[in-house]
């Protein structure tokens, strides 16, 4: 068998393998993607919350995408405390101004960034939140100050539809 013929045969086999592999990949993808959130779950992305009954110094917890969202109407002391912290003292430096657009309202995903427990309100060394699972302390802006959690508690996308209603998501 000549050199040329061998090459052509190799090409044929390589092409067959390559085309076959593409097909296998294309077949596997639907089997993987089916486990991603489905269309009905994605459609539930936003929740509207009536906050007219929340007094200063109180927190309400609402469910959004199956997770708790803390909505806290902060006192002036808490705001002042949150805004006076220097960025360099923070493990995950973020300004309170960026976290709470309206300083009175802190809207935050109530999930500890360590391993997903729900922190307790008004506990811990920084008058904010304390996670009982592994001892992470958060301040009045929900920023991590002490403990194993790597980042601040997440701020979801939200907006005030009117003075009394917050739309999360």
């Amino acid at each position: 068998m000549s050199e040329k013929k061998t090459n052509r045969r190799d090409f044929l086999f390589t092409a067959t393998y390559a085309v076959g592999a593409v097909g296998v990949g294309a077949t596997i993808w639907p089997m993987i993607d089916q486990m991603n959130p489905d269309a009905s779950v994605k459609a539930l992305a936003s929740t509207e919350v009536d906050v007219s009954s929340v007094n200063v110094g109180k927190t309400i917890t609402v469910l959004w995408r199956g997770k708790p969202v803390f909505i806290r109407r902060r006192t002036q002391d808490e705001i002042a405390e949150a805004r006076s912290v220097k960025l360099e003292d923070l493990k995950h430096p973020e300004n309170d101004e960026d976290r709470a657009k309206d300083p009175e309202w802190l809207v935050m995903l109530g999930v500890c960034t360590h391993l997903g427990c729900v922190p307790l309100d008004q506990k811990g060394d920084y008058n904010g939140w304390f996670c009982p699972c592994h001892g992470s302390h958060y301040d009045t802006s929900g920023r991590i100050r002490k403990g194993p959690a790597p980042t601040n508690m997440e701020i979801p996308k939200y907006e005030f539809v009117n003075a009394n209603t917050i739309k999360i998501g």
Binding site: P30, D33, N36, D38, A39, S40, V41
Partner: peptide, 13 residues
Amino acid sequence: EHIMRDVNYGWLI
């Protein structure tokens, strides 16, 4: 019907 309508590629599977 949920599989047929909402699940990703559910109809195919």
